[in-house]
Amino acid sequence: MTSHVLEWLAAYHDGELTINRQRQVEQHLQDCQTCRAELDAIEGLSSLLKADPVPQQTPPQRFAAQVQLRLPRTSPPFPRQNADPLPRWVLSAPLALIVVWAFLQSALWITSFILTADWFLGQRIVLFNSWLASESLPETIGDLLLLNAALLVGTTVLWATWMAFWWTWKQNLGLKLSFNRIQKEV
């Protein structure tokens, strides 16, 4: 017979053993009277304790009403938001927009400056000997202004969308919760 499993019996009784250990204990209990008696004692004590009933309690609704009466009239501050946090990419979206916008603005301004210098100085710079340089300066500047305006509008729309998303999340403390509520109510 293997050595006794007395130290595992309480956990066995409470259902807290791993499957392997549980099998080991069960196997041992089949042959060992000492451990069997110890387990019976643990189970006997548990039954004895559970035989003691809890006296009748106040009905739940009445009890809850009594609790409500003891609650402070004003709600405690609930600054913490337990809704699921926004994904990181959402939080970094405004920064990305600023970087893209700044890059394109810089590119446009540098291009405009070089083209203007080129037109005044009458020298062609090879780098810009392209569709921009092939047009007259007013047309080129017009194209650039148009491009700049489109860029500004696009960035603003993206920014506004992000702000709306952020505001909704902040107000509702997570759309998920609201959605869950609606689902349950329906």
Binding site: P60, F63, Q68
Partner: peptide, 13 residues
């Protein structure tokens, strides 16, 4: 209140 009703028994016991 619903939470209180649900857990009253456990807490009082």
């Amino acid at each position: 209140t619903e939470l209180v009703c649900r857990h009253q028994n456990g807490v009082v016991s």
